[in-house]
Nucleic acid binder design. Sequence first.
DNA 1: AAGAAATGCAACCGCCCCTAT
DNA 2: CATAGGGGCGGTTGCATTTCT
Length: 321
Amino acid sequence: MGRAPCCDKTSVKRGPWSPEEDSKLKDYIEKHGTGGNWISLPHKAGLKRCGKSCRLRWLNYLRPNIKHGDFSDEEDRIICSLYVNIGSRWSIIAAQLPGRTDNDIKNYWNTKLKKKLMALHHPRKPSFPPSSSILDYFTQTPTTFNDLQTISHPSNNYPNTSFNPFYQNQDSMNPHMQYNNYPIIKDNNNMFMFGSEGSCTSSDGSCKEIKQEEIGYHHHHHHMSSIGFDEFNNNNNFMISSNNESVIGGANMNQYEEKSSGVGYSYNSTTISQTQALTPLLDYGLEDIKHLISSNNNNIKGFNVDEIHKNEENGMYYCHY
DNA sequence: AAGAAATGCAACCGCCCCTAT
DNA sequence: CATAGGGGCGGTTGCATTTCT
């Protein structure tokens, strides 16, 4: 037994709004406000519409200062950044973009932005060299890090940490480390993994200032990032996992626990996030990896691409520097 | 030129959260 | 405390427009 609908669908107009309806709604709200009740509003405004339909029309179209189309590179970056961190919480994402509606952002992501990213990361069809500002964004660690700091942090919307997508897990083995929630982008066939910030924190907060090139050199500054592969900087190694079975690993493999069937991963005893399902990753070959890295080497300084080699046992790629 | 396919996007559906009672 | 119902949200639909063949 389902819930009763909010209004009688047979006596209510549906479909696209006419200019007349628009101006009725707009005039009424500008004069009287919403009165805190959308359900009764259409009757008072002389509209034969469902209250929810009025609310939607107002919020997505009639309300003042709404922008449509022409998303800027900066907006792209913010959307991508938030999406990889919190997923499809469109209203939260929209709250970071003045004048944008959640509906618009959702449409934009589903129809354009996602494809843009997918095209960049399609297995066996790597598009090199990377040119998109989005790709730049994901490969330039400080940008990622700083942007997430400067926009207002949506974690405030999640008072309960166990459901807070921004909640940073503390690493019990290494109190200097925190791990942001694990970001994943998924399509119907593959799981695409994007970057996460593993950021250092200390009591005085000074580690917020760490620069990109430092991240790889401090053993307790652990950074994972990027497009289609992971990097782990740990004890002067970094590691890229890129087979389509297992997904991630660290320089110290025993830090990572692969759960059965390869669909869940945890870090030490701390579950990284509630949305794990990391296989299969992109199936990059060695040449692809080298190409990716070399087009990308502002991310990690001081290593030689030619030294990248694959460990056949675990499918990981290694490079010492 | 015209039919087909793809795309863009406003609007709807229905579930869940929150709050007033 | 329990519950009803409005608000809010994310997923999806369906149609108009654009692009492709």
